[in-house]
């Protein structure tokens, strides 16, 4: 039985990698985020985000939202950058209430915001595109208007 399972798992893996090879990777996902950006992002996360969102990114029930595979984290870049710039409170996330207040982190540089969001979008089981300092700069400029 165990052997059969292993064999099945092997087949599944082969199938998965075969189909992955067949499909041309979407352009935006082609490049993995640079290791330096991820490392910088981790530093910013540890100093700035961890006390609420926790070391595993799992957040706190009813208070601080998780950062694991939520629509906010994986979705639209502009929305998540604005959350960091403006803070967030009183918004349900994927049907759950979180009642704590997130303040603004607009004192972080464009580069720091790009790094931490790229880190979050590629940690805790997440996989999403990188965010660049130039993108943050543009969103910040539009945010001020």
């Amino acid at each position: 039985m165990k052997k059969l399972l292993v064999a099945l798992a092997g087949l599944l893996l082969c199938g998965a990698s075969a189909s992955a090879q067949k499909k041309p990777a979407p352009k935006a996902k082609a490049a993995a985020p640079a290791a330096a950006l991820i490392a910088q992002g981790k530093t910013v996360y540890t100093e700035t985000c961890l006390s609420c969102h926790q070391a595993d990114g799992g957040g706190v029930d009813g208070l601080n939202p998780p950062l694991i595979k939520t629509s906010y984290v994986l979705g639209d870049k502009t929305r998540i950058v604005k959350v960091v710039l403006n803070g967030l409170q009183g918004v349900d996330i994927d049907g759950e209430e979180y009642n704590n207040a997130m303040p603004s982190y607009d004192f972080l540089t464009d580069q720091q915001i790009a790094a931490v969001l790229t880190y979050v979008r590629n940690s805790f089981g997440n996989k999403a595109t990188s965010i660049s300092a130039a993108e943050v700069k543009a969103i910040r400029a539009a945010n001020k208007k």
């Binding site: 207040a101 303040p103 603004s104």
Partner: peptide, 14 residues
């Protein structure tokens, strides 16, 4: 409805 009655709730240095 606040942590410490800051001008900006939970904001660093407020």
């Amino acid at each position: 409805y606040s942590n410490s009655c800051q001008v900006k709730d939970r904001q660093k240095g407020s």
